[in-house]
Design a protein around this nucleic acid. Structure first.
Length: 570
RNA sequence: CGGGGUGUGACGCAGCCUGGUAGCGUGCCUGCUUUGGGAGCAGGAUGUCGGAGGUUCGAAUCCUCUCACCCCGACCA
């Protein structure tokens, strides 16, 4: 490809709508163009990247035995009413009406449609298992679209759905997909982790998210520093402390802590590390009971875990300041579990190992120090894992400690079991002639999001640094003086022709721009390899090679440059 | 949804407070010179100042409404 025949539209300055580095670079490099909030046009350069990702996904899905099909983007309401999700999916679903005032939605996902196909097409266990997938545009009316294609409303997703006669078969396919996804992200050359995930509202027994690791990621992941363990931080278990509680060694005393309201302030004021302070949270359960939750000062409440604890009472909320004062007669910053407060006390397991700790005195601007369970207050009524894990916690798999990092979710695999097949009546006849609902799995990959995630992970101050498998062009040829020097032009043209003939994605910058302009553009758009051809080097019979990622340069014999360039790509 | 902010040429911005009919940098077009890291000179094109209404002799500027976009927000304890 020649730049004169292509369409490059680079910007020196990023439009101010962009916050995230990948978003800025995608706009500056001309990969995408914004049409509306959460709506992006894919420009030719960006589309080349998108297509390469799609192709890798497609190849690996096919290799894994899944069958590609293509489902309608617009779906009738009836199907969603049947599954019960028409109302429950919420405002994320874009609902539309046709000319007959019939309800449709622009598909946010395709479980209903695929299950409808399965119930029409599959009658016998002999047809199972089967796995259908598609690469489709979805629309989810996000509360707050942001970060460009990272959290867009319209986006491209690979979604696959498998159907099985029994759970064992589903589990096999689940493992198959786990491996397939790993292969896909390996091939994309992204740094990623498969993390155990909460199955959430979708239900089912097993679920893994695949995260591209990046500091800007929206999700927080706990991973084993010395093992394969990885889990969403909401899900990672904080193990009970291994050491027993030390005996009390200090008397309990009441100290004035004027104006010190949060753990940080109290810690600094009392010159006591946060891990020696008990954080007391007053919450109200769904059935109206007020409860104390105790956490170590340096720990954070995990709402998912606490919610599970209160499940029978339909969740919980934090008590308001008014409620706290009415109940305890103290400001929220000075409350604690000691005294005749009458509240149920629920403690995180880490708290159980604490002795001689500090906590609020239930008197505004006062705290207690040297507090001990058993002596100064009763043991908590209940203990549980209620906190987020932190860096350095023991890994739940017993191997070493946990690290914390951020990730961008680019893939998710679920064991759906029979949730949809039952709702929609997707049944089959087993060997015994019995009608049974099919076991289902579902497997998604955020194709368009991967473009942004790849950039988050691969960029520098000059621009994008594409991993080779998804680079829009693999090699750039930058001729200096293309229009002036016949020798330069001749070699550039020949190299371009020979590489293109070899099936290499090569971009010849024939714009006759100044070198600085060419170099800056080629670096911004992130082409992995650049060969610069100029009169200067040609006099020595040489051209210059530069690696985008490492920046290392190398002089190459002009005669052998085609072979050299081919070797780079292979 | 709540809070905050911004809309002025393709991109980044100034002008608004204190009304007088729009400016800067980059980019774009033409010509000449230049050509190994975002060139120089000369000439040039491009703006319903987000939209509607109002105040005024006069509105980018003041007022009202509206639309779009961006950012922040779900543990002070």
């Amino acid at each position: 490809m020649r730049t004169s025949a292509f369409f490059l539209s680079t910007l020196k300055e990023a439009p101010n709508e962009a916050e995230l580095v990948s978003h800025k670079l995608m706009l500056r490099a001309g990969l995408i163009s914004r049409l509306g909030s959460g709506l992006y046009s894919w420009m030719p350069l960006g589309l080349r990247v998108l297509r390469k990702i799609e192709q890798i996904v497609r190849e690996e899905m096919n290799r894994a035995g899944a069958l590609e099909l293509f489902l309608p983007a617009v779906q009738p309401a009836e199907l969603w009413q049947e599954s019960g999700r028409w109302d429950r999916f919420g405002p994320q679903m874009l609902k539309i009406k046709d000319r007959h005032e019939r309800d449709f939605c622009f598909g946010p996902t395709h479980e209903e449609v695929i299950t409808d196909i399965a119930r029409r097409e599959i009658r016998s266990y002999r047809q199972l298992p089967v796995h259908f997938y598609q690469i489709q545009t979805k629309f989810r009316d996000e509360i707050r679209p942001r970060f460009g294609v990272m959290r867009a409303r319209e986006f491209i997703m690979k979604d696959g759905y498998s159907f099985h006669a029994d759970f064992a078969s589903l589990e096999r396919e689940y493992r198959n997909m786990f491996e397939t996804y790993s292969r896909i992200f390996d091939r994309l050359e992204l740094e990623y982790r498969a993390v155990a995930a909460d199955t959430g509202a979708i239900g089912g027994t097993g679920s893994h998210e695949f995260h591209v690791l990046a500091d800007s990621g929206e999700d927080v992941i706990a991973y084993g520093v010395d093992s394969d363990y990885a889990a969403n931080v909401e899900l990672a278990e904080a193990l009970a402390p291994a050491t027993a509680r030390a005996p009390a060694s200090q008397p309990m005393s009441r100290v004035a802590t004027p104006g010190q309201h949060n753990i940080e302030e109290v810690s600094a004021f009392l010159k006591l590390p946060a891990k020696r302070i008990v954080k007391t949270l007053m919450v109200v359960t769904g059935d109206g009971r007020e409860v104390f939750i105790l956490l170590r000062g340096d720990h954070m409440l995990n709402a998912v875990k606490a919610d599970r604890k209160f499940l029978l009472n339909e969740g919980f909320r934090f008590a308001t300041e008014v409620e706290v004062r009415a109940r305890l007669g103290a400001d929220p910053g000075s409350i604690g579990p000691v005294g005749n407060h009458g509240l149920l006390v629920l403690a995180d397991r880490a708290v159980m190992a604490m002795n001689d700790f500090a906590c609020g005195a239930n008197e505004t601007d006062y705290h207690l120090t040297g507090v001990n369970f058993g002596r100064d207050l009763p043991e908590p009524a209940e203990t549980a894992d209620l906190r987020d894990v932190v860096e350095g916690d023991p890994s739940p798999d017993g191997k070493g400690v946990l690290g914390i990092c951020r990730g961008i979710e680019v893939g998710h695999i679920f064991q759906l079991r029979t949730k949809y097949s039952e709702a929609l009546g997707a049944t089959f006849l087993d060997e015994a002639g019995q009608s049974r609902p099919m076991e289902m799995g579902c497997y998604g990959i955020g194709v368009s999001r991967i473009v942004a995630a790849a950039i988050e992970q691969n960029h520098d101050e000059r621009g994008i640094v594409w991993p080779m498998p998804i680079a829009p062009f693999e090699i750039a040829i930058a001729p200096v003086g293309y229009r002036k020097s016949p020798e330069v032009k001749a070699l550039a043209d020949r190299l371009h022709q020979e590489l293109a003939a070899a099936g290499i994605d090569v971009l010849l910058d024939d714009r006759d721009e100044r070198p600085g302009v060419m170099f800056a553009d080629l670096e911004l758009i992130g082409i992995p390899h650049r060969i610069t051809i100029g009169e200067r080097g040609l006099r020595q019979g040489q051209v210059e090679y530069v690696s985008r990622r490492t920046g290392t340069t190398q002089m190459v014999e002009a005669d052998g440059v085609t072979a050299f360039a081919k070797a780079l790509v292979r």
